[in-house]
Design a protein around this nucleic acid. Structure first.
Length: 488
RNA sequence: CGGAGCGUGGCGCAGCCCGGUAGCGCACCACAAUGGGGUUGUGGGGGUCGCAGGUUCAAAUCCUGUCGCUCCGACCA
């Protein structure tokens, strides 16, 4: 064991970068802030994507695709929305290059656009410009459209998966006839996000409402799932917005009700992104690298054959083939590492890549009809008869899935503190973790706390109980019980 | 925009002060042995030293200019 990762406790951020790099998840693109998602990382995203795609299709949503380019003027239609995104938009101003003796190519000034075009930071505006065309009557509602796409938000400080100028995501945009229906949709989707995080990514999340200052620009209400990462900081893992009639008004989208009234359309939008891949790494990773939840792991079982010579290799191969076939039949994603690296090297490499289960098989096992199984989550090794192993593996995978969730939940609970005094608050925030306490409901308190401690209100959790609490900062009676933390 | 620094095989670096025709580690390729926790040995391939100009018999090295990047500050989440 010579190649080690930076210490997770003292150099968490270097540790993260190294894991992303060594597990071959992603790399930096040539333009600052851009990311190349490598095949192993993309399979991970693909699995998340497929899971969620099924969830929304089961609930009546359909996929579509809207353009990357948006007229600049669209962004300005909704006042809050411009405010929120204006500072991070990529703008297309010209349409041509031309050869230049000194610099190779230069922008052709002749090709300047009449109306400049922005690259979508999110698609509410294009989509609502289209909904205006498509919606006339209550019979056209609801519209439950989702799109899988890339968006661009110009960022100065970047971290692979967590914050890049371009990222992949899913954005749902729905249109409804009533406020109640839109609110229901917002909450239904939030529940799907919770399930995705809890049940598939094994990341326990807190569901709740964002404060006014943290909500999406253009929304009436923003709901979120928030998770605690391995360094005790918070990560917003998904958001679901009730947009009210804001975009309908901005794009003049009305419909005729059953009783022949004209009314603004009610809207929602919601998204999760490749940031979730970062969340998986930050939540489950350990000193040996990645640990992947079996349900989304590209490879669930990695088989390491061990042999001294060609004859043994042939024997091991013949021994393994039916075992692998049997696993594949029961739906296990299994892969064999036939490279001629040493076994020790392979152990470390696949541990870095977070594969939940390793199966070793060598001459000894062939003789005795066994295989060796090693769990990535606990490191535990056991020798099993081959048939028993095949039977047991699906259960072991479930067990690992649950184990990762339990461990993450325990970690979050150990690092969440109910606090009453501001002194105590500052101590906890400095050490890292979630603080659960009273808030007087004012933006002023929020801002001051942020200035003094860098902590922000992550959300007002649904299970809040503000009665009897006082605001940890102002001492006024608490309007809400909230979660404060330093965030990504 | 202010301050500092860096550009030399794929990656990380040495060489520059004091000019003499480019080297180390990792990675890569070949062969052999090894193989149950990052295995050795031997051999090999790959760089007009960011770019342009100048000084010189001779420039990675000295001078001028230029381009790019990183860090700190500023700004932003």
């Amino acid at each position: 064991m010579s190649k080690r990762l930076p210490d997770r406790n003292t150099e968490f951020s270097r540790w993260y970068t190294q894991v992303v790099n060594q597990a071959c998840l992603a790399d930096y693109g040539p333009v600052k802030g851009t990311m190349v998602i490598r095949p192993y990382g993309f399979q991970l995203w693909d699995n998340i994507k497929e899971t969620f795609d099924k969830m929304i299709k089961n609930t009546g949503h359909v996929n579509a695709y809207f353009p990357l380019f948006i007229p600049k003027s669209f962004l300005a239609r909704e006042a809050e929305h411009v405010e929120g995104f204006a500072k991070e938009c990529a703008v297309v101003t010209h349409t041509r290059l031309k050869a230049d003796e000194d610099h190779g190519v230069v922008v052709d000034p002749e090709s300047k656009l009449e109306e400049e075009i922005i690259v979508r930071p999110t698609s509410e505006t294009v989509i609502w410009s289209m909904y205006k065309k498509w919606i006339q009557s209550y019979r056209d509602l609801p519209i439950l459209i989702n799109q899988w796409a890339n968006v661009v938000r110009w960022e100065m400080r970047t971290r692979l998966f967590l914050r890049t100028s371009e990222f992949l995501w899913q954005e749902g945009h729905t249109a409804h006839a009533t406020a109640a229906e839109a609110q229901q949709e917002t909450m239904d989707i939030l529940e799907l996000y919770r399930q995705l995080a809890d049940d598939y990514l094994a990341i326990p999340v807190i569901t709740g409402l964002k404060t006014e200052s943290e909500k999406f620009a253009g929304a009436d209400k923003t709901y979120c799932i928030e998770a605690m990462m391995g360094d005790k900081r918070a990560l917003q893992a998904g958001t679901s917005h009730n947009l009210g009639q804001n975009f309908a008004k901005a794009f003049d989208v009305t419909f005729q009700t059953k009783d022949n009234q004209e009314e603004w359309v009610w809207a929602t939008s919601w998204g999760i992104s490749t940031r979730l891949v970062g969340a998986v790494i930050l939540t489950h990773g350990d000193e040996k690298g990645l640990r992947l939840p079996p349900k989304i792991a590209p490879v669930q079982v990695i088989v390491i054959p061990i042999s001294k010579d060609d004859q043994q290799t042939a024997e091991v191969k013949a021994y393994l083939n039916p075992i692998i076939a049997a696993l594949e039949r029961s739906g296990v994603r299994v892969q064999v590492d036939w490279t001629d690296n040493s076994p020790g090297f392979k152990f470390n490499e696949w541990e870095m890549k977070g594969v939940p289960l390793r199966m070793e098989a060598g001459p000894r096992d062939v003789q005795q009809g066994n295989v060796v199984l090693a769990r990535r989550d606990t490191g535990e090794k056991q020798v099993l008869a081959k048939n028993e192993a095949v039977e047991k593996i699906p259960y072991l995978l479930e067990n690992i899935q649950q184990g990762l969730f339990d461990q993450a939940l325990k970690f979050r609970e150990e690092n969440t503190h109910n606090i009453e005094s501001y002194d105590e608050f500052k101590k906890v925030i400095k050490k890292g973790g979630f603080v659960r306490c009273g808030w007087d409901g004012t933006e002023k308190t929020e801002t001051r706390v942020k200035e003094e401690t860098k902590a922000t209100i992550r959300c007002i959790p649904f299970d809040e109980n503000p009665s009897g609490l006082t605001c940890v900062f102002s001492g006024q009676p608490a309007k809400h019980e909230v979660i404060y933390a330093k965030a990504y």
